[in-house]
Each structure stands twice: as structure tokens, then as C-alpha cells.
């Protein structure tokens, strides 16, 4: 497993993901894209309007099993260890389809290190675990800036980290997809997994946020 430290990560081209592998679209995705193209070409649908509708539901797409995985890791040290050792294997029982969490690697936030994941262009992004990425996350500006100046980008998301906390940027590839294991919020001693899962936001598992605190939940 290798991490790109943001200081040494060169990004002189958009995305260096060419492992000799072509992109892959399922039969269904091909049909959906065909329809979209035709409707847009013929003026029956506006791409921005289609995006806006999907964006409305962005938090309603995917099984969202990531929060349950994180909550279990917070309460079960053995599971936490197996998640950090082999996230694909640890995540598999949470899915209702066999392919949930393929090639998944979990990276843990600690007081010394905060992790951020980039690249959501295609199957790189584990939407089966995290739900759909926010639209801003796919933008080139975000992807290139978070590599160059992660602290500033996180600041724009309202996340200010102590200077001594190292920020690591993980760039997904065809082989490896990342999720962040956020830190368990203080004041949650004795909470059940269900209670804890409610604190785990999508952004905390991408690394652009942290898990909600109990106070923020009004609990």
C-alpha cells in the first residue's frame, strides 16, 4: 500500500491512472448513457437539469453501509483491526450484494494524521460503501487543489486541523479505493452502534469533514 504525501505527489497530468486498463461500463450504464445522450441531443433534457435532479438525491443513492462499518470499528477493536488490515474482507458482510467494498482500503484518522480521499471519476470511488460523492467532489478544481493545498481546501469546508496534524491525500486507482475511518467523537462512551452510525457523515468518510459530535445531534 502506498500513500501519496501531498508534498511529493506530482500531478502534472490530470490523473495518472492508466494501468493499461480501459474504463468499464455495465450494460445498464451503457443504456442509461445512450438515453441521456439522445435526450440531450434532441433537446428533451438539459444536462444541468438532469444533474440537478440526481444531486437532489445524492444522499439517497447507495446502500450507505460505510457509517455502520465505522460504528462497528469504533466499538469492536477486533473488527477495527480487521478493517484496517483488509477492508474489502471486513466490509463484505455488510453488503447485500457480493461486490460491495471490492479493493477497499480503510485509512484511520488519528490525532497525528488526517486522511483525505480524492478521485471519484468512475469505479475508483466506493459509492457502494459511502453513497454517491457530492458533485463538487468530482470537479477538477477540487481534485487538483486538494492535492496541492489540502489544508486550505479543508479550511473551506470548515475543517481546521491543528498545525501538527499531518494531512495525507489518498488518490484512488483502479486497484485501490479508499475510505477514511474517522475518529470517534468525544462524549459517546457507552453508545450503541446504531447511535454511533448516525454520527458518521459521508464527508467524514471522504475526509473533508469529521464525524458529528453528540451535541451537534442534539443527543
Amino acid at each position: 500500500m502506498t500513500a501519496h504525501d501531498h508534498h511529493s505527489h506530482s500531478h502534472d497530468h490530470d490523473h495518472d491512472h492508466d494501468h493499461g486498463e480501459a474504463s468499464d461500463l455495465s450494460e445498464t450504464e451503457l443504456r442509461v448513457r445512450a438515453l441521456q445522450t439522445i435526450l440531450i441531443e434532441k433537446g428533451y433534457a438539459d444536462p444541468a437539469a438532469l444533474d440537478a435532479i440526481v444531486e437532489t438525491y445524492e444522499t439517497k443513492i447507495g446502500p450507505h453501509i460505510g457509517a455502520r462499518i465505522v460504528a462497528k470499528a469504533w466499538t469492536d477493536p477486533d473488527f477495527r483491526q480487521s478493517l484496517l488490515t483488509d477492508a474489502s474482507k471486513a466490509a463484505a458482510p455488510f453488503g447485500y450484494k457480493g461486490d460491495v467494498g471490492d479493493n477497499l482500503v480503510a485509512v484511520e484518522n488519528t490525532p497525528d494524521r488526517h486522511n483525505v480521499v480524492v478521485c471519484t471519476l468512475c469505479s475508483c470511488y466506493p459509492w457502494d460503501v459511502l453513497g454517491l460523492p457530492p458533485v463538487w467532489y468530482k470537479s477538477f478544481a477540487y481534485r487538483s487543489r486538494v492535492v496541492r493545498e489540502p489544508r486550505a481546501v479543508l479550511g473551506e469546508f470548515g475543517l481546521t486541523l491543528p498545525d501538527q496534524t499531518e494531512i495525507r491525500v489518498w488518490d484512488s486507482t483502479a486497484e485501490v479505493r479508499y475510505m477514511v475511518l474517522p475518529a470517534r467523537p468525544a462524549g459517546t462512551d457507552g453508545w450503541t452502534e446504531d447511535q454511533l452510525a448516525a454520527l458518521v457523515t459521508r464527508d467524514s468518510m471522504i475526509g473533508t469533514g469529521v464525524a458529528n459530535s453528540p451535541a451537534g445531534q442534539g443527543a
Partner: peptide, 21 residues
């Protein structure tokens, strides 16, 4: 309780096209 949910992104895209039409 809040509205439609989708298993996969393409489902939301198909729903979006239908709403648009």
C-alpha cells in the same frame, strides 16, 4: 419518508430523465 431512494447511481439518472420528460 423523505422521497425516492436508489441503490445505484444509474437508477437516479433513469429517474431524473423520467422526471425531465
Amino acid at each position: 419518508s423523505q422521497g425516492p431512494v436508489f441503490c445505484e447511481p444509474w437508477e437516479a439518472q433513469a429517474f431524473a430523465m423520467t422526471l425531465a420528460l
